[in-house]
């Protein structure tokens, strides 16, 4: 493999990886606070993409309005999800919470299936996302620049929010000890809603970018990116924001390099993430950057 191809694949891997990172943040925020794998998080990607299709394709809105609405609605959906499916179970065994999350995920998928139909729809990507830049034999699709840049800006904003504001401090405190934080006069429910809102907004943005990269939407499109982003979060150390970003990038680069190095094995690409997960849990369950998260009992 020559240098140009290598750079090419590096760019592809980075763009895929930053998408994973964007989605993984939502998992890690929620897991850090509630110790819950939010199974329905992947489906928020799908919701956002469908709202985008509706806005741009059906109502012919300009893309900033449609995309803004898509991200906003997805954020709202995340908050409603927590209200409806998770809050009533906060004192229940964690296994119930997980089953509730799985049920919520299937509910969202099938609701969209009923409303919009099962046939895949083309995603009307805005004109600026098409085309490519050629530099020194390197062929970079414009989208491969847009995705990492958008993801970078959003992630930077999130880091500032979590580490530099009062609400962010409350969030970190809850992740550390929910009971004690509530005794300190923090409105725990509000902060948990905020965490869901932030994670879902990022998933909304991730969903739109994902749909621009793979411009076809269907009601089940969120499952695989969701699972892989979760694995990325575990890989980086779940509950750790920087870990989620690192995990996402590593997973993206690994996947692309499998496809690039062994084209015949492309079909097994989706199994790679799970194999990686199993290895990580065996060798280093805390992930690359994770501190020792106490393995709590159900």
């Amino acid at each position: 493999m020559d240098l140009v191809t290598l750079m090419q694949q590096l760019v592809n891997g980075l763009s895929l990886g930053s998408l994973y990172a964007l989605i993984a943040i939502g998992y890690t925020l929620v897991y850090g606070i509630l110790r819950l794998i939010n199974f329905a998080h992947g489906d928020l990607i799908m919701v956002s993409a469908y709202v985008g299709v509706m806005g741009v394709g059906l109502f012919r809105w300009p893309w900033p309005a449609a995309f803004g609405l898509a991200v906003g609605l997805t954020g709202l959906m995340g908050v409603l999800l927590e209200r409806g499916a998770y809050r009533p179970l906060r004192r229940a065994p964690r296994i119930s919470l997980l089953i509730s999350a799985i049920a919520a995920s299937f509910f969202l998928e099938n609701l969209v299936l009923v409303i919009a139909g099962g046939r895949p729809k083309p995603f009307p990507a805005p004109a600026w996302s098409a085309g490519a830049i050629e530099a020194g034999g390197l062929f970079i699709p414009r989208l491969s620049l847009v995705i990492p840049l958008t993801a970078g800006v959003l992630l930077l904003g999130l880091f500032l929010l979590v580490h530099r504001t009062q609400a962010g401090r409350a969030m970190r405190a809850i992740a550390y000890d929910l009971e004690t934080t509530s005794l300190m006069g923090v409105n725990v429910n509000r902060i948990i809603s905020l965490a869901f809102l932030l994670g879902s907004l990022l998933a909304g943005a991730g969903g739109l970018l994902w749909a621009m990269k793979y411009p076809q939407v269907n009601p089940f499109m969120g499952i695989l990116p969701g699972l892989k982003a979760f694995i990325a979060a575990v890989l980086g150390g779940i509950g750790n924001l920087a870990g989620a970003v690192l995990g996402g990038l590593v997973l993206g680069l690994l996947e692309i390099s499998i496809v690039a190095l062994f084209p015949d094995w492309g079909g097994y690409r989706d199994a790679l993430a799970f194999a990686l997960l199993i290895i990580i849990l065996l060798v280093r369950p805390t992930g690359l950057l994770g501190e020792a998260v106490a393995e709590e009992k159900l």
Partner: peptide
Amino acid sequence: VRGDYLAIVTLGFGE
């Protein structure tokens, strides 16, 4: 592993 990790690992084997 236990709990939600067990859930996700078995889901991984299924996949």
